[in-house]
Amino acid sequence: MVYLATCRENCSIRSISEATGISSGYLEQLMIPLRRAGLVQAERGVQGGYRLAKADITCKEVLAASEGDFEPAPCKNCTRTDACKTHQIWSLLQSAVVDFSSQVTILELASHLVESEAGGGI
């Protein structure tokens, strides 16, 4: 997603694979949930490929689409939740992670990438 944010045109799976080091097969699989979540768009044809579906995509959206919601502990179907004080620690962890990753956008990360390239930081 960070790489897509740096591209002006549609990107082929091959070019994404070259830039990120992720295998083409795995990228194809990743694109399915990302498309379903409305985060990337695919276009067929000669100029086809993938691009970000919108500008303000957050890390939280990408992680939720590709990995599911962040749950640090299996508290979901636990019957002790009300009485369990450690459950509150895990929900605090969960909100800290969700809050932070909702604040960081893919575009922001991409801007750091451009900076590091300009500074010869690769």
Partner: peptide, 29 residues
């Protein structure tokens, strides 16, 4: 050993900062 520029940016500007955030919350609890 073969971390590329994209991985590096995500590590430094997302995961590292996320860890600092989590640390801040639990160091004060």
């Amino acid at each position: 050993s073969e971390e590329n520029a994209i991985e590096r940016v995500i590590r430094l500007h997302f995961y590292q900062k996320l860890d600092q955030e989590v640390k801040k919350v639990f160091e004060g609890l």
